[in-house]
């Protein structure tokens, strides 16, 4: 846990934490944190993703698949050592933000995130990826209408939790949504998942992580599929029935033979995660979100007193 103020109660200049916090420039802190969080995300995969890729390499029986996984592991190491983005496609920048109702300066968070993205684009750098869909003009700073994409949720407490989620276009292009007939139900869901993986082939950069969102409204289904991607690889769904479905579908997906980069092999997906919402009696929405092997995410928690804690990577100073 990082403290930005070192306090010594014996010191004659000791100021109680609460008074220091009043003078704290939280907006500036969040801006700086955004830059460092994006830098961490794009240069270093979380430990669970690295482990899954190493396991996939060890288990892969197809020689071409093995060459792909070896290149992936070498690339991850090079990026981490030299602090260079793992992939040139640093994505359309997204954030998942949980904000405590007691957190100070709520109105300044969005501006801080936007300023942070602008700075990160130059300082890291990130590839400028925000393009106007009508004029085709690239804004060159990763800022645009509704971009970065910020997903808010309000929670109890006095802290702010930011997850930087830079996701590339290759895997995003393969995302699929279908509103099944309730009669097709679970069988329809299983068929849709497996057919989507086969259709996507090598395009989403397998071995992928597959997020499946079930139920809710159409937009909620895709949102749930994306949220499923945020769950660490080694964590199954808390409901044992759904956890079993995750395992069964992952096994099925990996028996298709699509393999790393679609060149054939055993590792088509590293993980498959499901999230659900209750559905309307007439509809059974299923959304599938693909995440490429470069499953980049970094999460930090900021407390109102200015303390910052990194949750996705061990022992990191993000300020």
């Amino acid at each position: 846990m990082e403290k930005i103020f070192k306090l010594d109660e014996e010191d004659e200049y000791y100021v109680p934490f609460s008074r220091l916090a009043e003078n704290l420039d939280l907006q500036n802190l969040i801006e700086k944190l955004t830059v460092n969080l994006l830098r961490l995300a794009v240069t270093e995969l979380p430990a669970d993703v690295k482990k899954a890729l190493k396991d996939a390499y060890r288990k892969e029986s197809n020689p071409i698949g093995k060459i792909q996984l070896k290149a992936i592991l070498e690339n991850i190491q090079l990026a981490e050592e030299e602090r260079i983005p793992i992939c040139q496609d640093t994505g359309l920048i997204s954030f998942y933000v949980k904000v405590g109702s007691e957190f100070r300066d709520l109105s300044k968070i969005e501006e801080a995130l936007i300023k942070g993205v602008k700075r990160a684009t130059v300082e890291i750098p990130l590839r400028p990826n925000a393009v106007n869909p009508f004029t085709q003009r690239n804004t060159n700073n990763n800022i645009g209408r509704y971009v970065p994409c910020i997903h808010w949720s309000i929670i109890d407490g006095d802290y702010l939790e930011i997850t930087a989620f830079p996701k590339g276009g290759g895997s995003e292009n393969m995302c699929a949504l279908r509103i099944l007939k309730p009669a097709e139900g679970l069988s329809g869901l299983k068929r849709f998942v497996i057919e989507s993986v086969v259709d996507a082939g090598g395009m989403p950069c397998p071995p992928t992580i597959i997020g499946v969102g079930v139920g809710g409204t159409s937009d909620m289904a895709m949102n749930l599929a994306k949220k499923a991607l945020l769950r660490p690889i080694d964590k199954s769904h808390s409901d044992p029935v759904i956890a079993e479905l995750e395992r069964d579908l992952l096994r099925a997906v990996n028996s298709t033979g699509v393999g790393p980069m679609g060149l054939g092999g055993d590792s088509t997906a590293l993980a498959l995660k499901i999230e659900y919402a209750h559905r309307h009696p007439a509809s059974y929405p299923v959304a599938i979100a693909f995440q490429c092997w470069a499953a980049r995410r970094a999460t930090a928690r900021v407390y109102s007193d200015g303390r910052v804690e990194c949750l996705s990577h061990k022992d990191r100073n993000l300020l």
Partner: peptide, 10 residues
Amino acid sequence: AAFTGGAAVL
């Protein structure tokens, strides 16, 4: 010819 997707630093 395929180059490994995402292996951008390499």
